[in-house]
Simulated assay, not measured.
Amino acid sequence: MDYIRYLNESFDYTKEALWGRWVRWLLLLIASILFPFIYGYSLRVMSGAKPAPEPQGWIGLFIDGIKLIIVSLVYTIPVFLLAAVSFLAYLVPVSSTTTPGTGPAPGLGPEFGIVVVLAILVLFVVAIIVCSILATFGSVRLARTGRLGEAFRFGTLFAHIGRVGWLNVFIAFLVLIVVITVVELILMLIPIIGPIALFLLSPAFVIFASRYIALVYESAPAPA
C-alpha cells in the first residue's frame, strides 16, 4: 500500500477544496462548531466525491452527521462491554485472595490476577483496533450506499478489509493518526497563533482525513 501517495493525494485534494475558496472554508468552520454538520460533510467526502463537494443541503448534512454518530456509537459498544468484563475479571482474583480466614485460593494468587489483567488488556487493545477499523469501513460504506444498515454488514466489511489486508489498513490509519497528531502538536506549541491556526485549519483536517480514508477503502474492490 502506497501510504505516501495517499497522503499526497489527500493533501492535494484538501488544498483544491479550500485554497482560494474562502466562502466554503467559512461555511465549513461554522459546520465544525455545529459538529453534526461537519460529520455529514466528512461522509460526503468519503463517498468519493471529486472534487470536494460544496457544503450545501444543510438538512441532509445534519442527517448524515447523525448517521455517522450512530455508527461510531454502535461500534463502541463492544469496547465498553469488554471494559466492564475486564473490571469484573480483575475483581475476581483479588477477592478470592483476600477472603478472611480462608487464605489465598490455589491458582488464584496475585500472579494469576496480573496475568488475567494483562490478557484482558491485550484483548481490549485488539478490540479497539478491530472496532475502529470496522467502524471506519462501515462509515465509508454508508457514504457510498446512503444506507445506514450497510455500515453493519459485518460479513461484507470483514471480506473487504481482508482484501485490503488488516495489517495494511492498521498501518495506513496509524500513519494518518501520526501525521495529524504531529501537525496539531506543532501548532499547539506556537503561542497564541497556534491554537487559532488549529481552529482555522479544522476543516482541512476533516477533509484530509476523510479523503485519505476513502483512498484506503478504494485500495481493494468493495464486495457488492
Rank of each mutant, 00 (worst) to 15 (best):
P78W: 00
A83D: 02
L88K: 08
A89S: 05
Y90H: 10
V94C: 03
S96G: 14
S96V: 14
S96Q: 13
T97W: 12
T99H: 09
G101E: 08
T102D: 13
G103T: 01
P104R: 09
A105V: 06
G107S: 07
G107R: 02
L108V: 01
P110E: 09
G113H: 01
G113P: 01
V116R: 08
V116M: 03
L118S: 10
L118K: 04
A119Y: 08
A119L: 14
I120E: 07
I120H: 04
L121P: 11
L121M: 13
I128K: 00
C131G: 05
C131M: 12
I133S: 03
A135F: 09
A135N: 11
F137E: 04
G138K: 06
G138N: 11
A143G: 02
T145Y: 07
G146R: 09
G146A: 10
R147V: 12
R147D: 14
L148G: 06
L148C: 06
L148A: 05
G149H: 06
E150R: 14
E150Y: 14
E150H: 13
R153A: 15
F154M: 11
F154A: 03
T156V: 14
L157F: 10
L157D: 02
H160M: 05
I161F: 10
R163F: 11
W166V: 07
W166D: 05
N168F: 01
N168E: 11
N168I: 06
F170D: 04
F170N: 00
I171Q: 08
F173L: 08
F173I: 02
L174Y: 11
V175H: 02
L176T: 07
I177V: 15
I177L: 15
V178Y: 07
I180W: 02
V183K: 10
V183A: 13
V183F: 13
L185D: 11
I186T: 04
I186D: 04
M188D: 15
L189F: 05
